[in-house]
Design a binder for these strands. Sequence first.
DNA 1: TCGTAAATTGTAACTATTACAAAATAGATA
DNA 2: TATCTATTTTGTAATAGTTACAATTTACGA
Lengths: 141, 141
Amino acid sequence: MEKYIKELKAHKLKITPQRLDILSFLDKNRIHPSADEIYKAIKINSPALSKTTIYNNIDVMVKNNIIKSFRFMDSNELRFDYKTTEHYHFICRKCKSIYDVDISLPYLEKFEHYMHKVEEFYGDYKGVCENCLNKKKLKNK
Amino acid sequence: MEKYIKELKAHKLKITPQRLDILSFLDKNRIHPSADEIYKAIKINSPALSKTTIYNNIDVMVKNNIIKSFRFMDSNELRFDYKTTEHYHFICRKCKSIYDVDISLPYLEKFEHYMHKVEEFYGDYKGVCENCLNKKKLKNK
DNA sequence: TCGTAAATTGTAACTATTACAAAATAGATA
DNA sequence: TATCTATTTTGTAATAGTTACAATTTACGA
Ligand SMILES: [Mn+2]
Ligand SMILES: [Mn+2]
Ligand SMILES: [Zn+2]
Ligand SMILES: [Zn+2]
């Protein structure tokens, strides 16, 4: 808990129970949840919680680079991540789990003959995850 | 126009003026437009057009791999592309133009030590485009 | 402890998309 | 060519995710 207080103070953001709940939830549940998933999870123990508070705080924390937001190709909801350092995501087409992939900015060198200035890259990998592959193996036996 | 008729017939889809309009618009305007942009553009000459028709046809054409859909990191609307072969996109943070980038599935080899089976990759590059860079240069003179 | 700027809340509005059912039509068949 | 019917188009209503707003509450510096 002290960790989240420090983080918020470092960015001159007020310490509120709601903010601590959001950070703690994202830190302890590395599932890349949507705003609604965060809301529902925290609301169980804090029934007075408003969804607007989730959106407000998500916004301010993304702006302060305390958390990261991203969106999947085929999904219409934003997802959030406690991990802010550069990494990409792998989504399983069977169980829809989202895994972190520690790979950095791909193929910048291939950009040589484009005259654009690349500053950011965003990417998702999609396929079947280790767990689902193993489940299949067991079934086939 | 004959080209689009062939394409539709190849997929056993009925030839309708609306479908021809959509294909023609996407082919002749490689701007990666949203559903609404396609709708507004075609509606000028075909005022009876319904937005549902746009969505219906976009769906069926994406499913038949006649066009491609994708979504940008920070945008909440789907965008559409006449080009269906593998390529990625570069978006300019100044003018918001979306350019095609002919680069193929990045960094598959780096996936070695993940036990997931990668099937697809989706990615966007972001930065400042050639045009905007040149504009800036002129200004600075 | 108090005062105030900032945060929280509930509600309403908004945007992109999807669902649905009635009317129109493409294209196969006689 | 005329007819038939499955498919397509249309308009409207519903939905999902998010944002705007204003009243109430709270964090925290003085
Ligand atoms: Mn992540
Ligand atoms: Mn493209
Ligand atoms: Zn899986
Ligand atoms: Zn530009």
